[in-house]
Computed example of a mutant assay.
Amino acid sequence: MKNVIILFFILASTVQAQDGKHEKIKALKTAYITEALALTPTEAEKFWPIYNSYHEKFHALRVKERTEIFGKLRNGLGALTDAEANELIDKNLAIEASELELRKQMTAELRKVISPKKIISLKKAEDDFKRELFERYKQGHGRRKQ
């Protein structure tokens, strides 16, 4: 019983630490994009609810992709039949089409609150943030191995 309680606390602290990391990354991303786009306080007030709403929808699509597509690939490609492979291709294309549709909808909404140049800069800012985050991750893991 004592081991179960200890395991519970370890799992709870791990989940809490991951939530903390997620929130920290979200805050860093918010600051990064706000600065990269040079959003005014008025623009930021209108931009972030739209962006966050669509970010949640994009996240749901990525979860769907992981469960429906990558989940089937865990056993390797050799275990797939041609029919299953075709089904995965169709699911992947449907998810990509959904992502494109979401991006179009988000862009239409953002056009009402920020300039077209800032909308174009948004994609670059997102990519730059991901790249920088990945570099920090690599550097952190490199230090731990030494």
Score class of each variant (00 low, 15 high):
118 K>R: 04
140 G>P: 00
34 T>E: 09
32 Y>K: 10
14 T>Y: 12
111 R>I: 04
26 K>H: 13
45 E>C: 03
139 Q>E: 10
131 R>V: 05
24 K>E: 15
96 E>H: 01
145 K>W: 12
73 L>R: 09
53 S>L: 06
21 K>A: 06
99 E>A: 01
64 K>W: 07
132 E>V: 07
39 L>I: 08
17 A>Q: 06
75 N>E: 12
22 H>D: 09
139 Q>Y: 07
123 K>R: 10
77 L>I: 13
31 A>S: 07
95 I>V: 04
138 K>N: 08
78 G>Y: 01
24 K>Y: 15
74 R>D: 00
25 I>R: 08
129 F>H: 04
109 E>V: 01
136 R>E: 15
15 V>N: 07
33 I>D: 06
19 D>T: 10
44 A>C: 05
71 G>L: 13
43 E>A: 03
79 A>Q: 06
129 F>N: 02
64 K>Y: 07
86 N>P: 00
81 T>Q: 02
146 Q>G: 00
141 H>D: 05
92 N>R: 11
72 K>H: 03
135 E>Y: 11
142 G>K: 09
12 A>G: 07
104 K>L: 14
116 P>A: 01
25 I>D: 08
49 P>M: 14
127 D>W: 14
48 W>D: 08
16 Q>G: 14
11 L>Q: 05
77 L>Y: 10
137 Y>K: 12
121 S>Y: 10
123 K>V: 15
28 L>K: 06
27 A>W: 10
135 E>C: 10
35 E>L: 04
98 S>K: 14
61 L>I: 13
94 A>Y: 05
128 D>S: 07
77 L>K: 07
60 A>H: 01
112 K>L: 12
136 R>M: 14
86 N>F: 09
51 Y>G: 04
5 I>F: 06
86 N>A: 13
141 H>K: 13
71 G>W: 08
29 K>T: 00
139 Q>A: 12
69 I>T: 04
123 K>F: 15
97 A>S: 08
101 E>S: 03
15 V>T: 06
89 I>T: 09
63 V>W: 09
81 T>Y: 09
72 K>D: 07
128 D>F: 04
103 R>I: 10
36 A>R: 03
136 R>C: 04
32 Y>D: 06
97 A>G: 10
65 E>G: 05
